[in-house]
Design a protein around this nucleic acid. Sequence first.
DNA 1: TCACATTAGTTAACAGATGTACTAGTTTCA
DNA 2: TGAAACTAGTACATCTGTTAACTAATGTGA
Lengths: 177, 177
Amino acid sequence: MAASDPGELDFWSFVELANRRLAREYGFRHQLATELLLTLNRASNIVTYDLEASVHRPRGLSWSGFRLLFVTWLAGPLEAKKAAELTGMSRAAVSNLAKTLVSDGLLSREPGSRDGRSVLLSLTDEGHRDMVEVFRVHNEREDEWAGVLSPEEQRILIMLLDKLVTNRDQFDVRGRN
Amino acid sequence: MAASDPGELDFWSFVELANRRLAREYGFRHQLATELLLTLNRASNIVTYDLEASVHRPRGLSWSGFRLLFVTWLAGPLEAKKAAELTGMSRAAVSNLAKTLVSDGLLSREPGSRDGRSVLLSLTDEGHRDMVEVFRVHNEREDEWAGVLSPEEQRILIMLLDKLVTNRDQFDVRGRN
DNA sequence: TCACATTAGTTAACAGATGTACTAGTTTCA
DNA sequence: TGAAACTAGTACATCTGTTAACTAATGTGA
Protein backbone atom coordinates (compact mmCIF):
# COMPACT_ATOMS: atom_id res chain seq x y z
CA MET A 1 0.00 0.00 0.00
CA ALA A 2 1.63 3.21 -1.16
CA ALA A 3 0.96 6.51 0.52
CA SER A 4 -2.00 7.70 -1.39
CA ASP A 5 -4.03 10.62 -0.10
CA PRO A 6 -1.26 13.05 0.75
CA GLY A 7 -4.15 15.39 1.52
CA GLU A 8 -3.13 16.35 5.02
CA LEU A 9 0.19 14.78 5.78
CA ASP A 10 1.80 16.71 8.61
CA PHE A 11 4.69 15.65 10.80
CA TRP A 12 2.70 13.48 13.19
CA SER A 13 0.61 11.73 10.61
CA PHE A 14 3.86 11.04 8.78
CA VAL A 15 5.37 9.52 11.92
CA GLU A 16 2.30 7.38 12.33
CA LEU A 17 2.42 6.28 8.72
CA ALA A 18 6.12 5.56 8.97
CA ASN A 19 5.69 3.49 12.12
CA ARG A 20 2.97 1.44 10.53
CA ARG A 21 4.84 0.73 7.34
CA LEU A 22 8.18 0.08 9.01
CA ALA A 23 6.56 -2.46 11.30
CA ARG A 24 4.06 -4.16 9.02
CA GLU A 25 5.72 -4.11 5.66
CA TYR A 26 9.36 -4.34 6.64
CA GLY A 27 9.39 -5.86 10.11
CA PHE A 28 11.55 -3.23 11.76
CA ARG A 29 11.22 -3.28 15.49
CA HIS A 30 12.39 -0.06 17.08
CA GLN A 31 9.60 2.36 16.20
CA LEU A 32 9.74 4.19 19.48
CA ALA A 33 13.42 4.91 19.02
CA THR A 34 12.80 6.26 15.53
CA GLU A 35 10.00 8.41 16.79
CA LEU A 36 12.11 9.76 19.62
CA LEU A 37 15.02 10.72 17.43
CA LEU A 38 12.84 12.25 14.73
CA THR A 39 11.11 14.33 17.37
CA LEU A 40 14.35 15.37 19.01
CA ASN A 41 15.88 16.41 15.74
CA ARG A 42 12.83 18.33 14.70
CA ALA A 43 12.39 20.17 17.98
CA SER A 44 15.99 21.27 18.02
CA ASN A 45 15.87 22.46 14.42
CA ILE A 46 12.67 24.42 14.86
CA VAL A 47 13.81 26.23 17.97
CA THR A 48 17.29 26.90 16.64
CA TYR A 49 16.01 28.19 13.34
CA ASP A 50 13.65 30.57 15.06
CA LEU A 51 16.30 31.96 17.39
CA GLU A 52 18.75 32.40 14.55
CA ALA A 53 16.22 34.02 12.22
CA SER A 54 14.50 36.25 14.74
CA VAL A 55 17.37 37.23 17.01
CA HIS A 56 20.79 36.71 15.51
CA ARG A 57 20.68 37.13 11.74
CA PRO A 58 19.02 40.54 11.99
CA ARG A 59 21.99 41.60 14.12
CA GLY A 60 24.56 40.21 11.73
CA LEU A 61 25.43 37.09 13.70
CA SER A 62 25.18 33.50 12.60
CA TRP A 63 23.99 30.87 15.05
CA SER A 64 27.50 29.45 15.33
CA GLY A 65 28.93 32.91 15.70
CA PHE A 66 26.61 33.54 18.61
CA ARG A 67 27.49 30.26 20.26
CA LEU A 68 31.20 30.90 20.02
CA LEU A 69 30.85 34.43 21.39
CA PHE A 70 28.55 33.13 24.12
CA VAL A 71 30.99 30.61 25.55
CA THR A 72 33.85 33.07 25.15
CA TRP A 73 31.86 35.69 27.00
CA LEU A 74 31.06 33.51 29.98
CA ALA A 75 33.99 31.13 30.16
CA GLY A 76 36.68 33.18 28.45
CA PRO A 77 39.43 33.82 27.94
CA LEU A 78 39.66 30.26 26.76
CA GLU A 79 41.63 28.15 24.33
CA ALA A 80 40.17 27.48 20.90
CA LYS A 81 40.19 23.78 21.72
CA LYS A 82 38.01 24.29 24.75
CA ALA A 83 35.67 26.56 22.80
CA ALA A 84 35.25 23.79 20.23
CA GLU A 85 34.36 21.30 22.96
CA LEU A 86 31.85 23.57 24.64
CA THR A 87 30.11 24.62 21.45
CA GLY A 88 30.25 21.17 19.86
CA MET A 89 32.00 22.48 16.76
CA SER A 90 35.13 21.09 15.16
CA ARG A 91 38.41 22.86 15.81
CA ALA A 92 38.54 23.88 12.17
CA ALA A 93 35.13 25.49 12.44
CA VAL A 94 36.22 27.49 15.47
CA SER A 95 39.33 28.59 13.66
CA ASN A 96 37.39 29.76 10.58
CA LEU A 97 34.73 31.44 12.61
CA ALA A 98 37.20 33.17 14.90
CA LYS A 99 38.87 34.65 11.86
CA THR A 100 35.71 36.41 10.76
CA LEU A 101 34.71 37.44 14.28
CA VAL A 102 38.15 38.94 14.82
CA SER A 103 37.87 40.92 11.62
CA ASP A 104 34.41 42.06 12.74
CA GLY A 105 36.07 43.42 15.84
CA LEU A 106 34.13 41.26 18.26
CA LEU A 107 36.73 38.70 19.22
CA SER A 108 40.34 38.96 20.22
CA ARG A 109 42.87 36.25 19.67
CA GLU A 110 46.24 36.13 21.42
CA PRO A 111 48.88 33.47 21.73
CA GLY A 112 48.59 31.37 24.87
CA SER A 113 51.33 32.01 27.39
CA ARG A 114 51.36 28.56 28.92
CA ASP A 115 51.32 26.61 25.66
CA GLY A 116 52.96 28.20 22.65
CA ARG A 117 50.72 26.34 20.21
CA SER A 118 47.47 27.48 21.69
CA VAL A 119 45.42 30.58 21.12
CA LEU A 120 43.39 32.35 23.75
CA LEU A 121 40.04 33.74 22.68
CA SER A 122 38.36 36.59 24.48
CA LEU A 123 35.79 39.24 23.69
CA THR A 124 36.74 42.75 22.71
CA ASP A 125 34.92 45.57 24.46
CA GLU A 126 32.65 45.85 21.46
CA GLY A 127 32.06 42.11 21.49
CA HIS A 128 31.17 42.28 25.16
CA ARG A 129 28.72 45.13 24.66
CA ASP A 130 27.15 43.26 21.75
CA MET A 131 26.71 40.06 23.70
CA VAL A 132 25.04 41.73 26.65
CA GLU A 133 22.67 43.44 24.28
CA VAL A 134 22.00 40.43 22.02
CA PHE A 135 21.60 38.05 24.90
CA ARG A 136 18.92 40.25 26.40
CA VAL A 137 16.76 39.60 23.34
CA HIS A 138 17.90 35.98 23.04
CA ASN A 139 17.04 35.19 26.63
CA GLU A 140 13.55 36.67 26.35
CA ARG A 141 12.97 34.58 23.26
CA GLU A 142 14.26 31.48 25.01
CA ASP A 143 11.83 32.12 27.80
CA GLU A 144 8.93 32.37 25.35
CA TRP A 145 9.85 28.95 24.02
CA ALA A 146 10.49 27.30 27.33
CA GLY A 147 7.45 28.96 28.90
CA VAL A 148 5.18 26.53 27.11
CA LEU A 149 6.36 23.98 29.66
CA SER A 150 6.08 24.29 33.42
CA PRO A 151 9.36 24.58 35.34
CA GLU A 152 8.92 20.97 36.45
CA GLU A 153 8.44 19.82 32.89
CA GLN A 154 11.48 21.79 31.85
CA ARG A 155 13.56 20.14 34.52
CA ILE A 156 12.37 16.70 33.54
CA LEU A 157 13.10 17.43 29.91
CA ILE A 158 16.61 18.59 30.73
CA MET A 159 17.17 15.52 32.84
CA LEU A 160 15.98 13.13 30.14
CA LEU A 161 17.98 14.84 27.40
CA ASP A 162 21.03 14.73 29.59
CA LYS A 163 20.51 11.07 30.39
CA LEU A 164 20.15 10.34 26.71
CA VAL A 165 23.58 11.66 25.87
CA THR A 166 25.63 11.07 28.99
CA ASN A 167 25.14 7.34 29.27
CA ARG A 168 26.57 6.99 25.83
CA ASP A 169 29.89 5.54 26.92
CA GLN A 170 28.02 2.26 27.02
CA PHE A 171 28.61 2.01 23.32
CA ASP A 172 31.07 3.42 20.85
CA VAL A 173 29.91 6.89 19.83
CA ARG A 174 31.31 8.90 16.98
CA GLY A 175 32.10 12.42 18.14
CA ARG A 176 33.88 15.26 16.38
CA ASN A 177 37.63 14.93 15.79
CA MET B 1 35.23 37.42 38.54
CA ALA B 2 36.56 36.02 35.30
CA ALA B 3 36.60 32.33 34.58
CA SER B 4 39.91 31.37 35.97
CA ASP B 5 40.71 27.71 36.51
CA PRO B 6 39.64 26.27 33.17
CA GLY B 7 41.10 23.08 34.58
CA GLU B 8 38.07 20.87 34.10
CA LEU B 9 35.41 22.83 32.33
CA ASP B 10 33.01 20.39 30.72
CA PHE B 11 29.53 21.07 29.41
CA TRP B 12 27.73 20.93 32.73
CA SER B 13 30.21 22.94 34.70
CA PHE B 14 30.03 25.49 31.91
CA VAL B 15 26.25 25.62 32.21
CA GLU B 16 26.59 26.10 35.92
CA LEU B 17 29.15 28.84 35.48
CA ALA B 18 27.01 30.52 32.83
CA ASN B 19 23.92 30.43 35.01
CA ARG B 20 25.79 31.96 37.90
CA ARG B 21 27.34 34.77 35.92
CA LEU B 22 24.22 35.55 33.90
CA ALA B 23 22.22 35.89 37.09
CA ARG B 24 24.65 37.55 39.45
CA GLU B 25 26.70 39.77 37.21
CA TYR B 26 24.16 40.66 34.56
CA GLY B 27 20.78 40.15 36.17
CA PHE B 28 19.32 37.90 33.49
CA ARG B 29 16.37 35.95 34.73
CA HIS B 30 15.62 32.97 32.53
CA GLN B 31 18.42 30.56 33.40
CA LEU B 32 16.24 27.47 33.18
CA ALA B 33 15.20 28.36 29.65
CA THR B 34 18.82 28.85 28.62
CA GLU B 35 19.77 25.55 30.18
CA LEU B 36 16.91 23.76 28.45
CA LEU B 37 17.73 25.07 25.01
CA LEU B 38 21.46 24.50 25.36
CA THR B 39 20.77 20.92 26.41
CA LEU B 40 18.28 20.34 23.61
CA ASN B 41 20.64 21.67 20.99
CA ARG B 42 23.52 19.65 22.31
CA ALA B 43 21.63 16.38 22.56
CA SER B 44 20.33 16.68 19.03
CA ASN B 45 23.76 17.52 17.64
CA ILE B 46 25.50 14.66 19.42
CA VAL B 47 23.01 12.03 18.33
CA THR B 48 22.75 13.33 14.78
CA TYR B 49 26.49 13.54 14.37
CA ASP B 50 26.91 10.00 15.56
CA LEU B 51 24.26 8.60 13.24
CA GLU B 52 25.63 10.49 10.28
CA ALA B 53 29.23 9.54 10.98
CA SER B 54 28.68 5.92 11.90
CA VAL B 55 25.83 4.93 9.59
CA HIS B 56 25.35 7.26 6.65
CA ARG B 57 28.66 8.80 5.60
CA PRO B 58 30.34 5.40 5.31
CA ARG B 59 27.59 4.47 2.86
CA GLY B 60 27.93 7.64 0.83
CA LEU B 61 24.86 9.42 2.18
CA SER B 62 24.70 12.76 3.92
CA TRP B 63 22.36 13.19 6.85
CA SER B 64 20.06 15.36 4.74
CA GLY B 65 20.23 12.90 1.90
CA PHE B 66 19.11 10.15 4.23
CA ARG B 67 16.24 12.24 5.57
CA LEU B 68 14.97 13.08 2.12
CA LEU B 69 15.16 9.47 0.97
CA PHE B 70 13.51 8.36 4.21
CA VAL B 71 10.40 10.47 3.81
CA THR B 72 10.23 9.68 0.12
CA TRP B 73 10.48 6.00 0.90
CA LEU B 74 7.66 5.97 3.41
CA ALA B 75 5.38 8.76 2.22
CA GLY B 76 6.27 8.86 -1.46
CA PRO B 77 5.64 9.57 -4.18
CA LEU B 78 5.34 13.08 -2.85
CA GLU B 79 5.78 16.64 -4.01
CA ALA B 80 9.06 18.39 -3.34
CA LYS B 81 7.18 20.95 -1.29
CA LYS B 82 5.80 18.28 1.01
CA ALA B 83 9.21 16.66 1.32
CA ALA B 84 10.63 20.00 2.43
CA GLU B 85 7.96 20.34 5.09
CA LEU B 86 8.43 16.85 6.45
CA THR B 87 12.21 17.01 6.56
CA GLY B 88 12.33 20.59 7.80
CA MET B 89 14.54 21.68 4.91
CA SER B 90 14.03 24.65 2.62
CA ARG B 91 12.58 24.01 -0.82
CA ALA B 92 15.87 25.06 -2.35
CA ALA B 93 17.71 22.49 -0.28
CA VAL B 94 15.36 19.76 -1.43
CA SER B 95 15.82 20.84 -5.01
CA ASN B 96 19.62 20.78 -4.78
CA LEU B 97 19.68 17.53 -2.90
CA ALA B 98 17.24 15.86 -5.26
CA LYS B 99 19.50 16.76 -8.15
CA THR B 100 22.42 14.85 -6.71
CA LEU B 101 20.28 11.93 -5.52
CA VAL B 102 18.77 11.62 -8.98
CA SER B 103 22.19 11.54 -10.56
CA ASP B 104 23.22 8.92 -8.00
CA GLY B 105 20.34 6.83 -9.28
CA LEU B 106 18.50 6.69 -5.96
CA LEU B 107 15.69 9.13 -6.60
CA SER B 108 13.31 9.64 -9.46
CA ARG B 109 11.71 12.95 -10.32
CA GLU B 110 8.71 13.31 -12.58
CA PRO B 111 6.38 16.19 -13.33
CA GLY B 112 3.22 16.21 -11.25
CA SER B 113 0.06 15.41 -13.20
CA ARG B 114 -2.34 17.41 -11.10
CA ASP B 115 -0.24 20.58 -10.86
CA GLY B 116 2.02 21.40 -13.76
CA ARG B 117 4.49 23.28 -11.60
CA SER B 118 5.10 20.50 -9.13
CA VAL B 119 7.53 17.62 -9.15
CA LEU B 120 6.84 14.20 -7.72
CA LEU B 121 9.69 12.49 -5.95
CA SER B 122 9.90 8.74 -5.56
CA LEU B 123 12.59 6.15 -4.96
CA THR B 124 14.13 4.17 -7.75
CA ASP B 125 14.45 0.44 -7.22
CA GLU B 126 18.05 0.95 -6.27
CA GLY B 127 17.05 3.72 -3.88
CA HIS B 128 14.50 1.45 -2.31
CA ARG B 129 16.98 -1.38 -1.84
CA ASP B 130 19.48 1.05 -0.34
CA MET B 131 16.99 2.46 2.12
CA VAL B 132 15.88 -0.92 3.41
CA GLU B 133 19.49 -1.86 3.90
CA VAL B 134 20.65 1.43 5.40
CA PHE B 135 17.67 1.74 7.67
CA ARG B 136 18.39 -1.66 9.15
CA VAL B 137 21.67 -0.32 10.49
CA HIS B 138 20.20 3.07 11.29
CA ASN B 139 17.37 1.60 13.31
CA GLU B 140 19.68 -0.59 15.37
CA ARG B 141 21.79 2.44 16.14
CA GLU B 142 18.73 4.46 17.07
CA ASP B 143 17.75 1.74 19.45
CA GLU B 144 21.15 1.79 21.10
CA TRP B 145 20.71 5.50 21.76
CA ALA B 146 17.11 5.35 22.88
CA GLY B 147 17.74 2.23 24.93
CA VAL B 148 19.46 4.31 27.58
CA LEU B 149 15.97 5.43 28.55
CA SER B 150 13.07 3.21 29.56
CA PRO B 151 10.10 3.10 27.18
CA GLU B 152 8.18 5.29 29.62
CA GLU B 153 10.95 7.82 29.72
CA GLN B 154 11.10 7.79 25.94
CA ARG B 155 7.40 8.46 25.73
CA ILE B 156 7.60 11.30 28.22
CA LEU B 157 10.53 12.79 26.33
CA ILE B 158 8.64 12.62 23.05
CA MET B 159 5.61 14.20 24.65
CA LEU B 160 7.59 17.06 26.17
CA LEU B 161 9.52 17.75 22.96
CA ASP B 162 6.29 17.75 21.05
CA LYS B 163 4.65 20.08 23.51
CA LEU B 164 7.61 22.41 23.28
CA VAL B 165 7.20 22.94 19.56
CA THR B 166 3.49 22.53 18.95
CA ASN B 167 2.25 25.18 21.31
CA ARG B 168 4.30 27.69 19.46
CA ASP B 169 1.41 29.39 17.71
CA GLN B 170 1.08 31.33 20.95
CA PHE B 171 3.79 33.60 19.65
CA ASP B 172 5.19 34.54 16.30
CA VAL B 173 7.71 31.92 15.24
CA ARG B 174 10.11 32.21 12.36
CA GLY B 175 9.98 29.10 10.20
CA ARG B 176 11.54 28.25 6.90
CA ASN B 177 10.18 29.98 3.79
C1' DT C 1 -11.62 36.52 -19.63
C1' DC C 2 -7.70 38.81 -18.55
C1' DA C 3 -4.55 41.13 -15.54
C1' DC C 4 -2.57 40.39 -10.89
C1' DA C 5 -1.23 37.90 -7.16
C1' DT C 6 0.35 33.55 -5.58
C1' DT C 7 2.81 29.34 -5.61
C1' DA C 8 6.33 25.39 -7.03
C1' DG C 9 10.55 24.77 -8.31
C1' DT C 10 15.18 26.04 -9.90
C1' DT C 11 19.30 28.79 -10.10
C1' DA C 12 23.12 31.72 -8.52
C1' DA C 13 25.92 33.98 -5.17
C1' DC C 14 27.45 33.39 -0.85
C1' DA C 15 28.31 31.88 3.99
C1' DG C 16 29.70 28.27 6.86
C1' DA C 17 31.16 23.53 8.16
C1' DT C 18 33.77 19.33 7.07
C1' DG C 19 37.96 16.55 6.57
C1' DT C 20 42.71 16.44 5.20
C1' DA C 21 47.11 17.90 5.17
C1' DC C 22 50.37 20.84 7.04
C1' DT C 23 53.21 23.77 10.48
C1' DA C 24 54.91 24.36 14.71
C1' DG C 25 55.20 23.69 19.68
C1' DT C 26 55.24 20.15 23.49
C1' DT C 27 55.75 15.74 25.79
C1' DT C 28 57.86 11.36 26.45
C1' DC C 29 61.23 8.19 27.38
C1' DA C 30 65.27 5.61 26.01
C1' DT D 1 69.33 15.23 25.62
C1' DG D 2 67.37 14.23 21.45
C1' DA D 3 64.28 11.71 18.30
C1' DA D 4 59.60 10.16 17.87
C1' DA D 5 54.95 10.70 18.98
C1' DC D 6 51.50 13.75 19.94
C1' DT D 7 48.73 18.01 20.02
C1' DA D 8 46.88 22.95 18.79
C1' DG D 9 45.77 25.57 15.33
C1' DT D 10 45.35 26.89 10.37
C1' DA D 11 44.85 26.55 5.15
C1' DC D 12 42.57 24.59 1.58
C1' DA D 13 39.37 22.19 -1.26
C1' DT D 14 34.87 20.55 -1.14
C1' DC D 15 30.14 20.14 0.00
C1' DT D 16 25.74 21.82 1.84
C1' DG D 17 22.58 25.01 3.04
C1' DT D 18 20.75 29.80 2.89
C1' DT D 19 18.45 33.76 0.74
C1' DA D 20 17.05 36.26 -3.24
C1' DA D 21 15.86 36.56 -7.86
C1' DC D 22 13.76 34.30 -11.56
C1' DT D 23 10.55 31.22 -14.59
C1' DA D 24 6.52 29.05 -15.25
C1' DA D 25 2.04 27.41 -13.84
C1' DT D 26 -2.09 28.24 -11.25
C1' DG D 27 -5.74 30.82 -8.83
C1' DT D 28 -8.75 34.89 -8.37
C1' DG D 29 -11.99 38.39 -9.01
C1' DA D 30 -13.55 42.56 -11.35
